[in-house]
Design a protein around this nucleic acid. Structure first.
Lengths: 211, 211
DNA sequence: GATAGTATTCGACGATAGTCTTAGGGGGTT
DNA sequence: AACCCCCTAAGACTATCGTCGAATACTATC
């Protein structure tokens, strides 16, 4: 069976480079590309993919929140996060969100190859930089990963500064339902109003800044 | 007359280096140091200073917002912003806030010396990197600089996720007054609710990230 | 001194946010 | 079947937010 693979990155050169590496590891595959988060969502909705390479630094991306949202929507698709960052914290937060792997953009092609090989076999690839234990307090990322898909959607929209009424309209649900989700989200995150939610959402975005 | 000069930076080595340069340019001066934004405020309140070197990346700093607030509180004290950033946008936003100069941390000592010389003469020092014109749309920074001191204080507290009641208590005014300020701030910034204000405040902080 | 503009202050009032309770339908587990 | 969780949603209620009008005061400019 031909495997559909989606590469989501706003950098054309990097898409091409990653694409050629993927083809060398998996000759029997069809590679699709997305240049921003919107295209990524559309592509995932249009057809089935067996793997997704996701850059969290795309122009319209909400960072780790997007990873969480995609993973909730398509839990069966392995997601390999692609980023310039090497910090163990960020890598671990991605893994908290059940990413199947993490590729540092500056890695040598050989390392990227082995990472892809691991993931296609169903394993998780973790760069050496993330080996240090990081289990002090429940990270924001792990808190966010306890949110259900609907709760995450509401959280994301709330993080954009929208009113409950607007969120309800955009998501096609009632304002009462939005409020219900928000109340649950607040309890799960240990906060009690929406400005703190916005601060949390921003904090997550700050962890995946531009190159 | 002995000049009191305040160096606010969280990096001990850099404070020492900058201090020695300042002394070489102005032998007749007393140099004081602050390691975070809180200490900076305390020092400015305790005695008069003739110049302030301000790092916007200190741990408890709110970035450009702090610069605006300090400049509103002590308009007569020349402030030289010290940062690792070289982007013209950021530099221009600092100048929009009436900073008297901008020193890029990686600059050679000679350039720092000439910058200090300019500022002590009452001139404004602008690094070459900021020469490009940048007059497309009214920047957030210039919008923020239209806020009065009281309005800025409320805005900063709001950006921390506080309730109006808490802001009122902290600033020693009535909740009604806080609300009135907030309404004015919203109109000036062209927004209509506090979550968008938080997003703007975060955006300002994002422009002075860690080294 | 008169005037205009603006900052600061505040109370009143409508709008929005958030909690709690209740409830029906769907999916999965034991 | 009984149980649990998710999604949805309505009603009622409190809290918080945000706007408006109005009073005072501080400019500044004529």
């Amino acid at each position: 069976m031909t495997k559909n693979i989606l590469i989501a990155d706003d950098h054309p050169l990097f898409r091409a480079a990653l694409s050629s590496i993927v083809k060398s590891v998996i000759p029997d595959c069809a590679i699709h590309e997305a240049t921003d988060y919107g295209e990524t969502k559309s592509a995932l909705g249009a057809q089935k993919f067996t793997m997704l390479f996701l850059d969290l630094n795309m122009p319209d991306s909400n960072g780790l929140t997007d990873l969480a949202l995609l993973k909730k929507t398509y839990p069966q698709i392995p997601i390999v996060v692609v980023s310039a960052h090497e910090e163990a914290k960020i890598i671990n937060e991605c893994l908290d969100h059940n990413a199947s792997g993490y590729i540092i953009k500056s890695s040598p092609p050989e390392e990227i190859k082995s990472a892809i090989s691991e993931v296609v076999c169903g394993n998780t690839y973790i760069p050496e930089a993330a080996s240090q234990g990081d289990s002090d307090s429940p990270s924001t990322a792990s808190l966010l990963s306890t949110l259900t898909p609907s709760q995450l959607k509401v959280f994301v929209e709330m993080g954009k500064g929208k009113l409950n009424k607007q969120i309800a309209y955009d998501l096609g649900i009632t304002e009462a339902t939005v409020k219900a989700h928000i109340t649950t989200v607040f309890k799960k995150l240990g906060i009690n109003n929406r400005t703190q939610a916005v601060l949390l959402a921003q904090e997550q975005q700050a962890k995946s800044p531009e190159l």
